[in-house]
Nucleic acid binder design. Structure first.
Lengths: 150, 150
DNA sequence: CTTCTTTTGGTCAGTAAAGGTCAAATTAGA
DNA sequence: TCTAATTTGACCTTTACTGACCAAAAGAAG
């Protein structure tokens, strides 16, 4: 198995253990596999391209990094899947987890998510009796997600 | 996270807590982050430029200062006005009128408005007792608008 | 009122720390 | 063998940080 294959495996393993997102230093990785830094770029372009289902972001300069994000499903189908998973009520914790997952998979932008989160937050639902908040959250979240994929 | 990022975060936090304006001493800030004063200028020029939506004013000499103002607030002030006009409850008709007004004035994009409208629509609030829907609408609308102007 | 001193902030060039590109050289596989 | 994938390294771009030197404003001294 070649070095590029080893690096790919290493990254895939990292990603699976870290919920589809990982951040690393190119130099560190190159040193770990005793290769030149540019080989990391080679692996990224040949195996972690958008067509392969990944987003790669990076930053130069001091404190620079490379971040790989896995985008599994097509955004719309992932959103629909999420909608179907929401029942008649949903608590704040679960809501946050669902939204985080959608962001991680690139299905929602951060701005959109922040807006939806604002609509579902405790501040927004404060005027409601506690026993109805989960129901309100479910309805709002579903309709927001359905609107987003329109 | 680098020093510049930390300084940026600190300033953003200050700004958000101080209604988009903050005033500080360059030397103080440099000391707080254990960096040279000129790094403050670096952060200001790279992250708080007019293109980023900020105005930076300063004055030298005794009692000197640096003032950062978040601009692009024309739509924001309209939104704030709207937020303040919302009480503890608001009916669907009034909500629609407010949103329409914000769109007409260019304070909100159509996409954003559609998303907010989805969160406030009858479909989203169907699971709630009728007598609580106006209260829910008020809370959600306020928080969404506040989120939009950040 | 001038002038000197102190207190701020401003500029800019240089160094360092990342990551990016590209094409040549090499290797693996059909 | 012939071709495509892999590996390498020279050179480039971006970002972060530092420090020497500059400029302005306020206050004190005369």
């Amino acid at each position: 198995m070649g070095t590029s294959d080893s690096i790919e495996l290493f990254l895939l393993n990292l990603l699976s253990k870290a919920d589809g997102v990982c951040e690393l230093r190119r130099g560190d990785l190159a040193e770990r596999f005793s290769c030149v830094p540019s080989q990391i770029n080679y692996v990224l372009t040949t195996r972690f391209s958008p067509e392969h289902g990944y987003i790669v972001e990076s930053r130069r300069g001091g404190g620079g990094y490379i971040r790989i994000t896995r985008v599994n499903m097509q955004p719309a189908s992932l959103v629909m899947h999420t909608v179907n998973a929401i029942g008649d009520a949903i608590d704040a914790r679960t809501t946050a987890a669902l939204l985080q997952n959608l962001v991680n998979n690139g299905a929602l932008t951060l701005d959109t998510t922040n807006l939806v989160a604002a609509a579902l937050g405790s501040a927004a639902l404060r005027g409601l009796p506690a026993e109805w908040r989960d129901a309100a959250r479910a309805g709002i979240l579903k309709q927001c997600l359905l609107q987003i994929i329109q």
